[in-house]
Design a protein around this nucleic acid. Sequence first.
RNA 1: GCCCCUAUUGUCUAGUGGUUAGGACGCAGCCCUUUCAAGGCUAAAACCCGGGUUCGAAUCCCGGUAGGGGCACCA
Length: 475
Amino acid sequence: MFRTRFAPSPTGYMHIGNLRTALYAYLIAKKEHGQFILRIEDTDQNRNVPEALAAIYRGLALAGISYDEGPDKDGGFGPYVQSQRLPIYKEYAEKLLAGGHAYYCFCGKEDKPALEAANERVEGYRDPCRDLSPQQVEARIAEGIVPVVRQRVPMEGVSAFEDHVYGHIEIENKQLDDQVLLKSDGFPTYNFANVVDDHLMQISHVIRGQEYLSSTPKYNLLYEAFGWEHPEYIHLPHIIREDGAKMSKRKGDPSFEDLVRMGYLPQAIVNYVALLGWNPGDEREFFLMQDLIAAFDMDRINKANAAFSLDKLRWLNGEHIRSLSPETFHEISLPFYPQGLAEFDLAKISQLIQVRTETLTDIPKLVGFLAELPEYSADLFENQKSKSTRETSRRVLEAVAPMLESQEDWSNEALFELLKTFAQAQGLKVGTVMWPIRTALSGQETSPGGATELASLMRKEESLRRIRLGLNKLA
RNA sequence: GCCCCUAUUGUCUAGUGGUUAGGACGCAGCCCUUUCAAGGCUAAAACCCGGGUUCGAAUCCCGGUAGGGGCACCA
């Protein structure tokens, strides 16, 4: 049975890397019809942000990642919040102590500053408390010193394991340090809690960032000490910026929710992020969640870091937008429409802009001209491609204005037919006729839709008003 | 400082000893066209460097270089 977990610490918002880790863990479980578990790693009392838990729930819901077990969804392996599992860690730490796989350490944080200067570090260094006699330990405790519990890592030997992404990893034990398992405040460290919880929650595959790659041997030593089997490992490369730097909120890199606010569809973001470090082995790039579940393969995850490109996300977002039904697109567009379009048929506008929308936040500048004709220069009436000059534009508008005035059927089709026939009769290119009309109607070099589409969108009077305005500019 | 990991066009990637090194984004051009998009087509653009191994290396080995990560009572 596949059981994976997403185990964020509630320190902030859901960033892109977190989203991908959660997604991969979800995909790996669901691919095998297994369970996906949400666990909150809040063992650092100083770093808990109250808002963060809500952000995690929001992010997962937005992404379409649902968990089978979690803080608010018991599956018999709870509690799923580490701060509520303190007695469990204590119990297991005592087992380790009893078996000699851990020891009490009485050193204060201040006792180690010299060692913390990284280049002073000696390989194979072991804490002096490692060799305290039971009597010495008792004496210290009697003094009232609150100890931490440290893992007793063998000084000799080599620890090795297989990772689904990185393959064979091998580290000499002397490179590993006697890490703290239980802090003096009674909370476990991540290094301890992850092992105890993953085992107790029967996690089969651990999916996490590659920053844990070099401490995984220490975790395996812990599994061994308990006589447990360790899970399979899938360590993930990092997502970085295009300039090679780390993603950082300070540098303005957006979180998952920021991207949604920026007009990206959650499903497009999920699709994009899935492709950052993984590919299906064929040339598909467009995926919805169900397709991802079917196609995902943890053994095809890349080892190298991947740069996050807004450009490509933008394109993929466009693909997702274009794949929406007109009704769905209209529905999600509605909140992005600016004021002043009350008299328009918004559903019709949506149809026109769907294929031209890359992010939902494009919408206001796409449709703004409808509400209010922008200020524009008569130069706009000149266009090489349509063979339009100021002169042809003026003549066309002059000729067309009365025709439109007496036109009753204001549909796109009828208008197009009328103007096309006119062009042919005059021996003009269709473009030469359409260009000045479209320009006068939009006041812009480009617009979502051509002359007759814009006209049919506007009331007849407004269309004629704008055409007369254009004519004035050309007079 | 020590340890671990990584390295194909600007970016995401395919590739597991013999390929004209494939695809995608972006960029440029063309076609289509009622402007712009969308769509179609075309182009430019890559195997970090140096040694091996081999008839033959992007692919295997070694050594550099560069980048990332770890060495917390943070996760």
